[in-house]
Computed example of a mutant assay.
Amino acid sequence: MKLLPPPNPNTTSFHYHGGGAANNINQLDHHCCPVKKNKVMPLLQHFFSSPSILPCKKNTNKNQNFIIKWAPRMDSITTIIARPTSDAAADLLLLRHHYRKNQRLAAQKEKLIVIMGATGAGKTKLSIELAKRFNGEIINSDKMQVYKGLDITTNKAPINERGNINHHLLGDFDPELGELTRSDFRRLTWSKVKEIESRNKVPFLVGGSTSFVHASLTDRFNPATNVFDRSNSSNSVSSELRYDCCFLWVDVSFNVLCEYLRKRVDEMMDSGMVEELAEYYASGSLSRHPGLRNAIGVPEFYDYFNSKGYDSVDEGTLYEDAVNDIKDNTCRLAKRQIEKILRLKTAGGWGLQRLDATSSFRKVLTSYENEKEDWREIWTRQVVEPSFKTVKKFLEEE
C-alpha cells in the first residue's frame, strides 16, 4: 500500500486496495495510515454497505484501487476517488455520485432554519408563522431576551402571541448567575437543537444578536476572536458551519426601520416600560445583573431614577432625554446588526436569502387603523410566501 502525501494539514489521503466488498475493508493498512481505525472503519462500512450504491457494486473490480480523503477535524470522509482497472469507469463515476449524495448522512449535520435581521425587522413574527407550518420550535438568539425579567424593555414576545410554539432560551437564564457568554450560548444551542430533533421537530434559530448566531453556527469557534472587528485582518469569518443551515434575512431599509423603531419605543413606554424599569431599579438588581443591565433602556434611565425626589431636578426633561436616548441607541444597534449580517454574507460567504420587508413597514407607518390589513397582505406576499418556498425546498432536500 502506498500512502499519498496529505494535500493540506487537515486532510489525509491514502490508498485502499480491495474494491467495494465490505468484507475486504479490513485490508486497509492502519500501520502506515495516520488515521485512527475506530473513526475510519465505521464510515467505510457505512459507505460500502449503503443500499444506494448496491446497483454499481456488482461491476466494481475486487482489485479496485480507491483514494480516500479523510478530514480528521470533521470526523468524516470527504471524497472517494476510484481508479479503474477495467472498463467499469461509468459505474465508478456513479459510485462517486451516490457517495456524495449520502455524504450529509455520514456527516450527520442537523438541519437548522436561521432567521436573522436587525432589531424590530419582524424576525419573531416570521419565525412563528413558519414554525406553525413546518412543525418547528424556536431557539432565541437575542442576547438580552435570554434573561428572565424586563420583558417589555427587552421586547420579548408575550406568551399569547407565540402561537403555541415552544420557545427556548427566551427568559430562561437567571441574570444573577452572571453574563451569558458566546461560548455558553454555543453549548446551549447545540443542546437545544438535539432536543428538538429528538422530538422530530424542526429547529429555528431566531434573533438579532449576530455574535451569538456566529458563535453557535461556525464549525470552529475561538472565543478569544471577534470576527466582526475589521481592524484586525486576521479575524476572518469561516464558511464552515456545524449545521446544515437555511438562512433567511429579514431586511428593512434603514431609514424606514429607524422611523418604525422610534414609534415602537413610544408604544413600549405606553405598555408599561417605565413602570417595569422603576421596579427594576427599586429592587437593587442593577449591580447583580452584569448582562441584563446592559439592555437598551436600563442605562438610559439611570439619571432619571437616581434623581427622582429632588425639587431642583426637572424630571420631565430627564424623562424626555432618556426616551430620546433609547430611540437613538436602538437605531444605532440596528445599524451595527445590519453591518454584521453583511459581513457574514460577504466575508464569510454565508448564503443568506434577503427578504425585503420595507414596503410592509412603510405601509404600517402611513396607514390609518382601518387600513392595517393592507400591510399584512404585503408582508405575506413579500416575506412569508418566499420564505415558505425556501424552507420547504430546503427540508425536502436530502
Rank of each mutant, 00 (worst) to 15 (best):
Lys2Ser: 10
Pro6Met: 10
Pro9Ala: 13
Ser13Lys: 13
Ser13Asn: 13
Gly20Trp: 13
Asn24Ser: 09
Lys37Ala: 15
Phe47Val: 15
Phe47Met: 11
Ile53Asn: 15
Leu54Phe: 10
Leu54Asn: 12
Lys57His: 15
Asn61Ala: 07
Lys69Pro: 00
Pro72Leu: 04
Met74Trp: 04
Thr79Ser: 14
Ala88Met: 00
His97Glu: 11
Arg100Tyr: 13
Lys101Thr: 09
Asn102Gln: 13
Gln108Ala: 13
Ile115Gln: 03
Gly117Lys: 04
Ala121Met: 08
Leu126Ala: 11
Ile128Asp: 02
Asp142Lys: 06
Val146His: 10
Thr153Arg: 02
Pro158Leu: 06
Ile159Glu: 14
Glu161Thr: 08
Gly163Ile: 06
His167Asn: 11
Leu169Ile: 12
Pro175Lys: 03
Pro175Arg: 03
Gly178Ser: 07
Leu180Val: 15
Ser183Arg: 05
Phe185Asn: 09
Glu195Gln: 14
Glu195Tyr: 08
Leu205Asp: 03
Gly207Tyr: 06
Phe212Gln: 07
Thr218Gln: 13
Pro223Ala: 09
Ala224Gly: 00
Thr225Ile: 15
Asp229Pro: 11
Ser233Trp: 01
Ser233Asp: 12
Leu241Arg: 09
Tyr243Pro: 04
Arg262Ser: 14
Lys263Gln: 14
Val265Gly: 01
Asp270Gly: 07
Met273Leu: 15
Val274Gln: 14
Glu275Pro: 01
Ala278Ile: 01
Glu279Lys: 10
Tyr280Phe: 15
Tyr281Met: 00
Ser283Leu: 05
Ser287Val: 08
Ala295Asn: 01
Ile296Arg: 09
Val298Ile: 11
Gly316Tyr: 00
Thr317Ser: 13
Ile326Arg: 07
Cys331Met: 07
Arg332Pro: 02
Glu339Gly: 06
Leu342Val: 03
Leu344Gly: 04
Thr346Asp: 08
Thr346His: 12
Ala347Gly: 01
Gly348Val: 10
Asp356Val: 11
Ser360Glu: 04
Glu371Asn: 08
Glu373Cys: 03
Arg376Tyr: 07
Val391Cys: 05
Glu397Cys: 12
